[in-house]
Design a protein around this nucleic acid. Structure first.
Lengths: 176, 176
DNA sequence: GTATTAAGTCAGCCTTGTTGACATTGCCAG
DNA sequence: CTGGCAATGTCAACAAGGCTGACTTAATAC
């Protein structure tokens, strides 16, 4: 197995059609896989360091991020975005609400729903985490250049599960 | 907002200097952050499904991947790559060795070292996991195109911690 | 008026990370 | 040769954050 790319790579007579597919060799794919692995570590490293000071973890960060991103979102919606069970989310959410970082308001039209908002303190922590993470992203974007960034986004988007791509794209729509 | 490349593309009057930095706005950075989050889920989804059948997890996958990648690597080297404690790695490695997926050979020159190799069964599982993960990566690469892939790699590389970037790059050097 | 939905909770389990302590073996310098 | 250090392995205990299953409450929907 593992065949696939290597065949093309070493075929000297390959015509243009073959040549333009060189970026699909197993070697390139493996390199992409490893890039994801190592980069994701860098991606989370800075917020993780900040979270250590509090008694929070990555799960709290994600909740803060998406509540900041979509203020007033319901618990159900957040469950869909985060892709965890309600028991998992509830544990995290309870801590953030008890600590006064997130506010839960009963729904206006549907009173079963709870709408989530960051409090001022929640907003402060979210900003701190976001600043750290964006600083690294900004440095990476700047060093790679605008065209690389477009490619970065295109590949990541294509890598998502369809349902998650839909959610990812619709996050920007309603926008603020 | 919600724009992505569209800002730059469609702004005819913008000066060159300003134009080239539009990809560094907070909005773009946040979008990049969310892309990493959603894409990483897709990235791990397929191998995770396979691992469920066995009693293994992501940690086992990572060990198999890097032992496959660098056959004969020492435990210490693997510790550096994976960035976990030796106790964590040992738990995973012990299971894989006990189950006959990884073989541990005493070092030739330095008998304190253990050199790790995949057995045939280990190689089989690694291939299955790798095939699944590469299939998704291949689809994403193909749909995004070669230039996007180059950008993808450039941004991810710039996002790594320097030490991890060094390791990432040197994985390709010694080759196999 | 019953069924369904949104939310919350309790209990228990698993994986995978962490510390700290300690044993074994082997390399190496003095 | 002996003491120190390095590489590995192991035990115990703990924490974060996933999961399932079961069950409650309140409110909406039909």
């Amino acid at each position: 197995m593992t065949g696939d790319g290597s065949d093309m790579r070493d075929r000297p007579g390959a015509g243009q059609r073959g040549e333009t597919l060189l970026f699909l060799t197993d070697e390139h794919l493996r390199k992409g896989i490893e890039a994801m692995f190592f980069a994701y570590r860098g991606f989370t490293a800075d917020p993780d360091r900040i979270l250590e000071s509090y008694s929070y973890g990555r799960a709290h960060h994600r909740a803060l991020h998406f509540v900041h991103r979509s203020p007033g979102t319901t618990v159900n919606n957040l469950l869909g975005i985060l892709g965890v069970t309600k028991q998992s989310l509830n544990r995290v959410l309870r801590a953030l609400i008890d600590d006064g970082l997130i506010e839960s308001r009963v729904g206006h039209t549907d009173k079963r729903e709870r709408h989530l908002y960051l409090t001022e303190r929640g907003s402060d922590l979210e900003s701190a985490l976001s600043d750290a993470q964006r600083a690294r992203m900004r440095a990476a974007f700047r060093s790679a250049g605008p065209e690389a960034v477009a490619g970065f986004r295109a590949v990541l988007e294509a890598m998502m599960d369809p349902e998650m791509r839909r959610r990812y794209l619709s996050l920007s729509e309603g926008g603020h």
